[in-house]
């Protein structure tokens, strides 16, 4: 190459005026920030604030909103009949969370020990069913387990039972449906946490004389704790709101928090009360997230990363 000529006749550099450069880049910057900010403001922040606002409003006899401040809705939130529903919801939620954890941890643990190809395939297999329709899949369970379902019919034909067993349309059915739909949200963060553990750490622990159990208790478990907590949050919180699960699998008789809110917007048309209950759910969510973050949890983990 002969670059000498380019050195020999230096062309005057193009003089771009400072302001044009800045105006251009600034406009590009705002064009990128504006859509997402506006969307989130108008369709997340404003609606949430409006829920808070509405939870302090009254309603008239016909269910219309009256813009008049009241604490009546929150008094109703804590009515005895409602407390029963929260307790029931929490119980179902906790049961769902514990069962998901008991299945997910060993499952993720065993998969994390596999080779990279097996890992990818197995984790893809976990995700596949979750992308097909949840209600159709719940109906798959109903097809199997309801009174006139496959299991009962087979057992009856084999003469093992004379009256069909109640396998769904009860609390067990609700928990089954919840565990089934939410299991993936427990598996993903735990698997990610396990998969991130540096193999050298385990070898170092072995080298220092730790037994397999000690390695698990002292090293693996603490390192995967954020994943466990993320999974628990991502199972427990949605379980409180999944009204269609209790509706379908509980046969509509088992009332849960999600159903209670839904009712205020569909059947009873008591929007302020529905908002007040929602506010309680929001506060509970925030509380759990604050605890999670205090314990060093990463918010991205909640989205499955």
């Amino acid at each position: 190459m002969s670059e000498h000529e380019s050195v020999a006749d230096p062309q005057p550099a193009v003089q771009l005026h400072k302001h044009t450069v800045h105006l251009g880049t600034r406009m590009i910057k705002w064009l990128q920030i504006f859509p997402i900010s506006l969307w989130m403001l108008l369709l997340v922040v404003v609606p949430m604030l409006y829920v808070f606002f509405m939870s302090f409003m009254s309603r008239n006899y016909y269910g219309g909103i009256v813009y008049h401040f009241t604490l009546q809705n929150f008094a109703q939130v804590f009515a005895a009949s409602n407390l029963q529903i929260y307790l029931h919801s929490f119980w179902i939620g906790i049961l769902t969370t514990v069962i998901c954890l008991l299945i997910s941890y060993p499952f993720a643990f065993f998969i994390a020990q596999k080779g990279p190809v097996a890992k990818t395939i197995l984790m893809a297999l976990v995700v596949v069913p979750s992308v097909s329709n949840s209600l159709v899949r719940l109906f798959g369970w109903l097809t199997l387990l309801r009174k006139t379902g496959v299991v009962n019919t087979l057992l009856e034909r084999l003469g093992l039972i004379h009256h069909p067993l109640t396998l769904v349309y009860n609390n067990g059915g609700i928990v089954l449906g919840m565990v089934y739909l939410l299991l993936m949200f427990m598996i993903l963060p735990i698997f990610n946490a396990l998969d991130r553990i540096d193999h050298n750490l385990i070898e170092a622990a072995e080298d220092l004389g730790a037994s397999k159990f000690q390695i698990f208790k002292e090293l693996i478990l603490p390192l995967t704790e954020p994943g466990i907590v993320a999974g628990c949050i991502m199972v427990f919180i949605p379980s409180l709101g999944y009204f269609f699960v209790s509706d379908v699998m509980g046969g509509g008789t088992q009332n849960m928090m999600g159903n209670l809110i839904e009712n205020q917007f569909q059947v009873s048309r008591n929007w302020p009360l529905g908002c007040a209950i929602s506010v309680m759910l929001i506060l509970l969510t925030i509380l759990l997230l604050v605890i999670y973050q205090r314990r060093g949890g990463d918010m991205d983990e909640l989205g499955g990363y």
Binding site: P238, Y242, W271
Partner: peptide, 23 residues
């Protein structure tokens, strides 16, 4: 904005649903 982005991910869907209905 960063915090707001997590709201739709973590908040129970029923709450997001009714908040949009209200608005």
């Amino acid at each position: 904005l960063d915090k707001v982005l997590y709201i739709p991910i973590v908040i129970p869907e029923v709450v997001l649903g009714i908040s949009l209905l209200l608005i």
